[in-house]
């Protein structure tokens, strides 16, 4: 349970970083922290205390194996979400470079040419 609480703490930290910081790069870092806390949550869902890695080796009984191994599905899901996170991160970095080129600042409160 403690692990889940700590994970939610990380999630909260990420939200705080995203909302309170005005620097573009810090906002991106906040975004990444949120993402990783959710990934960690997914890993925790599939984790089994004293479990073994879900890799079947030759000669092992699959039924016994399935009762001691950790759940591999969340790990596959996390890998996918990490890949997606990588794409988002790359796009955010590209956006922040472009924004810097146009506005000459990383301060989000000075990037306010949109009206209405």
């Amino acid at each position: 349970m403690l692990l889940y609480i700590l994970d939610m703490l990380v999630f909260g930290l990420g939200i705080y970083c995203l909302i309170a910081k005005r620097h573009l790069i810090k906002k991106i870092i906040g975004m990444v922290i949120i993402e990783y806390s959710v990934n960690l949550f997914l890993i925790l869902v599939g984790y089994r205390i004293n479990g073994i890695a879900p890799i079947l080796s030759p000669g092992e009984n699959p039924i016994v194996f399935s009762q001691v191994a950790v759940d591999p599905l969340p790990q596959a899901l996390v890998l996918t979400s990490i890949v997606i996170g990588l794409g988002t991160l790359a796009l955010m970095s590209a956006y922040s470079i472009k924004l810097y080129e146009k506005y000459r600042t990383f301060d989000m409160s000075e990037i306010n040419r949109l009206k209405g």
Binding site: S93, A94, I97, Y100, E101, R104
Partner: peptide, 24 residues
């Protein structure tokens, strides 16, 4: 795909970031 794309991202951000800095 991943290897080439990640390298392309790095190199692209590096080239483009340098361009922006030189412009400044």
């Amino acid at each position: 795909k991943v290897g080439a794309a990640l390298y392309a991202i790095f190199i692209g951000l590096s080239i483009y970031g340098r361009l922006v800095l030189e412009e400044e």
